[in-house]
Write a protein that binds this DNA or RNA. Sequence first.
DNA 1: GTCTATAGGAAGATAGAC
DNA 2: GTCTATCTTCCTATAGAC
Lengths: 212, 212
Amino acid sequence: MENEKGNISTTEQQILEAAKSVFLEKGMDGARMQEIADRAGINKALLHYYFRTKDKLFITIFRNLISNLFEQINLQLQNNDDIFDFVEKFVTNYIAMLEHNVYLPNFIMNEMNRNHENIVQIFESERVIQNVPKLEKIIKKSVEAGEIIPITAENLITDMIGLCVFPVVGKPVILNFLFRGDIAAHKKFMEGRKEHVINLIKNSLTPGKQIK
Amino acid sequence: MENEKGNISTTEQQILEAAKSVFLEKGMDGARMQEIADRAGINKALLHYYFRTKDKLFITIFRNLISNLFEQINLQLQNNDDIFDFVEKFVTNYIAMLEHNVYLPNFIMNEMNRNHENIVQIFESERVIQNVPKLEKIIKKSVEAGEIIPITAENLITDMIGLCVFPVVGKPVILNFLFRGDIAAHKKFMEGRKEHVINLIKNSLTPGKQIK
DNA sequence: GTCTATAGGAAGATAGAC
DNA sequence: GTCTATCTTCCTATAGAC
């Protein structure tokens, strides 16, 4: 049996992939060891042989997902000097990532809101958005150049992520309650979001307006 | 025993309140009938006497929460003619509501993402953001008056809600990974969000700028 | 490492007395 | 309506053979 890298996939890898998919879809509380074993093509006993408990398996998956996510975010936060260029790239890449990981944001936010004792451990070791100072420098430079109005890095990051993530996490809400189940209309809406968000952020940062 | 309205609270009311708090905190999968019974001050048997199954109890709670939420949102969407005034009021009221219901958005979005068969029923009957057309009229009028640049009502609603909701749903993520657990800094950040979001939206809508 | 079988317990739901 | 006691099912986890 081969995985996407062309390597022979070990049982452990199969378990990790199965567990990831089940946890992402069902959450910690809704996930069943039986289903993970099934998707991995093994039985429950073997599953417990590799990862003694459900908790340990969960924490492994959760750590991996968090690490990957923040690695990508940190990458986006460096290597930029033009703020408008940065916004465009960040939003573009973040939305692209979300399209390939639709379950991810709901999973992470939900599990972190239900504070399973498990998750607390993670905070100790991996507090991982390190590149905020780099963004602060870009902002400072752009403000001094008169290109944008002042904004904190934390607000800018929160704005961009919130505008991108909410339509994904809230998809069922938006589709059913805002578009009344009209899938075509919702699809069109989602296709236009990227451009909309980029323009929204850029517009909001552009100086030289008197509000009210 | 009295509830906040000063009425004698019946057993049923106590159950509903207990169930609401447990479901909001733990979610459908994490909630336990035993805990609901405990918080209601009764036992499991009586709980099942009132609501035969956990599913029925859940759907009752979920319906109520959804109805209340969208009732409020619909209220905000009517009775406004100035678009800037509308944005300010909507964001202000929405954030105030969130402060009193911190568990609500994560609960609703998470439960709707895990499509329990239960929830499907709700879509049939209550597709509830009816006042979109009213917002569209305000937007149209404001665009024609040259007060704002064009935007769809759906995008404006999604923007406002996303910018307000994400810091609440993603609080643990933001606090731990963006503010590195610094509660004071995070608190300050949250206190400034309302003004930030209002200005952000207003700025983004203001015309008379050439982007790039 | 991998399996079958089963222990052990938690949780939803019911029976039946009061 | 409300309780105690119990049933039944499901699920995590382990024992032990191969």
